[in-house]
Design a protein around this nucleic acid. Structure first.
Length: 633
RNA sequence: GCCGGUGUAGCUCAGUAGGUAGAGCAGCUGACUUGUAAUCAGAAGGUCGAGGGUUCAAUUCCUUUCGCCGGCACCA
């Protein structure tokens, strides 16, 4: 007698061993049809799994969230099967589930073309139609290696060879295709109902740039067509928000061949920048930061002392003059230490908080550049805190508060926190790393903040806390960072006089709330889709006249607003009002001011918001009050 | 940096099986004087990313190179 406990705590008794599918059938035929897998004592299993002992069972159907991963994994196999049928010379490697879909990497004598992908996707649909049963089989390591070696799948052999000896290996077969896989999978190919191949790309074997480059095919897969369409719509939306397109349409900035990875900020883009920079300036001064400015180009010897020359020499821009080598600064911290080093510092002076909007250059690999999100010249809302070990926790807490305070102003309320610990390539001994990692973790825990651990992701000089905000499409952007650096102050000779009269080396915290302003503004553009809130809008209002007659009145309204500090535009061209409204609406101007004869007569203005709302007429004074109150909120 | 794609007017894009290119919008000129998302007309606008090669002839073919796009790798 076998007892199977179901999620509603009811218990079903069976005379003999049976599969998960059999259990589903015993409940209802339609449930059996919908079942994709089962969770036996919390472990996911195929529907063909044989239940031969008492257990709890939760049937996984299309409706369950966990079904999605199974479908996607099966879609990856489906892709591999189609590729093997069309290109028998291709070797399969790995095909995991990723966010929103899956990919599969192949080794092939040539790159796949977009035309190939069309054929592959078509073949995948054919295989789905033919409803091939997906069967699981267990094999010994030796047999599995022998099998894949016999069909010439060298990568699979390599993968199996790396798997521990005592692991049971499972193979999944569907029609003419067999793949090594942990599973589980859907019971047959017809269960994969909604998928689409999305991208073609090169990818290194095992993610290592020293290895062969494989052909990666990306796809997305969903429970049904509605979900797939919904996903594709969101992708379209993301494309519509692309900061490179909006940046061009709104005339915010441009980039050109002569300066790859650098931004030419236009007046309108720079207006946004200034607002963001001023906001940071206000907020950090409340937290006791002092702003300063340090040189752009600094002698090589400083970078050698700081460790950058050996650690990041290749990605620093250099120059030289009169037999001296210089680096164009890739970061501000060494210079901040040089400022700290001027004059004796007492423990009474600490903590000292320096801030700088310093322009930094890093020679990022060409392939990594992306609009204004990843650039070679950037400015961070950078800052460095010099403090004692006792002050560390308090400073970390204070900074965490600052980050949340500022993100909230932009409407980012969902923030993911990550703690990155010691990387392989690092300076400083292990006791430094032990204590500093603990200190950061304590700061987070004292604030009851949840965080994920990222082992090996720390900076070469110390561990860090990273703050990733979520935009309105749910995408994560890592912006804020707090990095503990117990090494650099010592390397550059920073000291303070302690209470007992001895010289001590201060701790340093590198911190930024927004990170690179270029990137942060890129995030803002995509988050708001160009519809900036009034305080950030490059043009806050546009004055439009109906016809030539009202031009002088329109000019006076424009001048009045401009003189009161609002960013304003005037259009008194000989165009119809509909044309002017369309133009300014496309430029996402929050308020359009329409001036016709009526307005002159009543000494008012008529307002239209960028979303089309007609706000009727009011006096200019009333409008300015309205703007003022919107700016404060 | 690596793999693949791509580069034509200010913008969005078409085109040439090798014979130095075309549309819409914008800009310019003119007419119209307009009431809430594109008024009409005219003229003009291009070393077809850059260098080299093949050819009588290259924007088109070959090659080198640069930028951009999608990934991978990288991201102090």
């Amino acid at each position: 007698m076998i007892q199977v406990k179901l999620p509603d705590n009811s218990i079903k008794n069976f005379e003999q061993a049976l599969t998960i599918l059999d259990v589903a059938k015993s409940i209802s035929p339609s449930l059996a049809k919908a079942t994709l897998a089962g969770r036996i004592n919390e472990e996911l299993k195929d529907v063909s799994y044989l239940i031969d002992h008492d257990c709890s069972l939760k049937l996984v159907t299309e409706k369950d969230n966990e079904a999605l991963d199974i479908i996607r994994h099966s879609a990856a196999h489906l892709l591999a099967q189609a590729v093997k049928q069309l290109f028998p010379g291709a070797q399969v490697t790995i095909g995991p589930v990723i966010e929103n879909g899956f990919f599969y990497d192949f080794s092939y004598e040539r790159a796949f073309t977009p035309e190939d992908v069309v054929l592959i996707e078509k073949r995948m649909h054919d295989i789905v139609k033919s409803n091939q049963i997906i069967e699981r089989k267990e094999l010994s390591r030796e047999d599995a290696i022998a099998y894949f070696a016999s069909i010439g799948e060298k990568y699979k052999v390599e993968i199996i060879s790396a798997i521990a000896n005592d692991q049971v290996l499972s193979l999944y077969t569907q029609g003419d295709f067999t793949d090594l896989c942990r599973g589980p999978h859907v019971p047959s190919t017809s269960k994969i109902k909604a998928f689409k191949l999305t991208k073609l790309a090169g990818a290194y074997w095992r993610g290592d740039s020293k290895n062969e480059m494989l052909q990666r095919i990306y796809g997305t897969a969903w429970r049904n067509k509605e979900e797939l369409d919904n996903y594709l719509t969101i992708q379209e939306e993301a494309k519509r928000r692309d900061h490179r397109i909006i940046g061009k349409n709104l005339d915010l900035f441009h980039q050109q061949d002569e300066a790859p990875g650098m931004i030419f900020w236009h007046p309108k883009g720079w207006a946004i920048w200034q607002e963001v920079e001023q906001l940071i300036r206000r907020e950090i001064s409340l937290d006791g930061y002092q702003e300063l400015k340090t040189p752009q180009i600094v002698d090589r010897s400083l970078w050698e002392k700081s460790g950058h020359w050996s650690m990041f020499g290749e990605s620093m821009f250099t120059t030289h003059s009169e037999n001296r080598d210089y680096a164009i600064k890739p970061m501000n911290c060494p210079c901040h230490i040089l400022v700290f080093n001027q004059g004796l510092k007492s423990y009474r002076d600490l903590p000292i908080r320096f801030a700088e909007f310093g322009s930094c250059h890093r020679n990022e690999p060409s392939g990594s550049l992306h609009g204004i999100m990843r650039v070679r010249n950037f400015i961070q809302d950078d800052g460095h805190i010099f403090c004692t070990e006792d002050q560390l926790q308090n400073e970390a807490q204070k900074f965490i508060d600052l980050v949340f305070r500022i993100y909230k102003i932009f409407g980012f309320n969902d923030v993911a926190i990550k703690l990155s610990t010691r990387p392989e390539k690092r300076v400083g001994d292990d006791s430094f790393w032990d204590s500093s990692e603990t200190a950061l973790a304590n700061a987070l825990e004292s604030k009851n903040l949840k965080y994920t651990l990222q082992p090996g992701e720390g900076a070469f000089y110390g561990p860090k806390i990273e703050f990733a905000l979520k935009d309105c499409l749910g995408r994560e952007w890592q912006c804020g960072t707090l990095q503990l650096d117990p090494n650099m102050p010592g390397r550059l000779g920073a000291t303070y006089i302690a209470e007992d009269g001895s010289k001590k080396v201060p701790l340093m915290l590198h911190r930024a709330v927004l990170g690179s302003l270029e990137r942060f503004i890129g995030v803002l553009i995509e988050h708001y889709a160009g519809d900036f809130p009034l305080w950030l809008a490059p043009i806050q209002a546009a004055v439009l006249n109906i016809s030539e007659k009202q031009a002088p009145y329109a000019v006076s309204v424009y001048n009045n607003l401009k003189n009161n500090g609002f960013r304003c535009e005037l259009d008194i061209s000989n165009e119809k009002i509909g044309y002017k409204i369309r133009e300014k609406t496309l430029l996402k101007v929050p308020y359009l001011i329409i001036i016709g004869d009526k307005e002159i007569e009543n000494n008012t203005i008529t307002l239209r918001k960028r979303d089309g709302t007609d706000m009727g007429s009011m006096t200019l004074e009333q409008f300015q009050e309205l703007l003022g109150s919107e700016l404060i909120s």
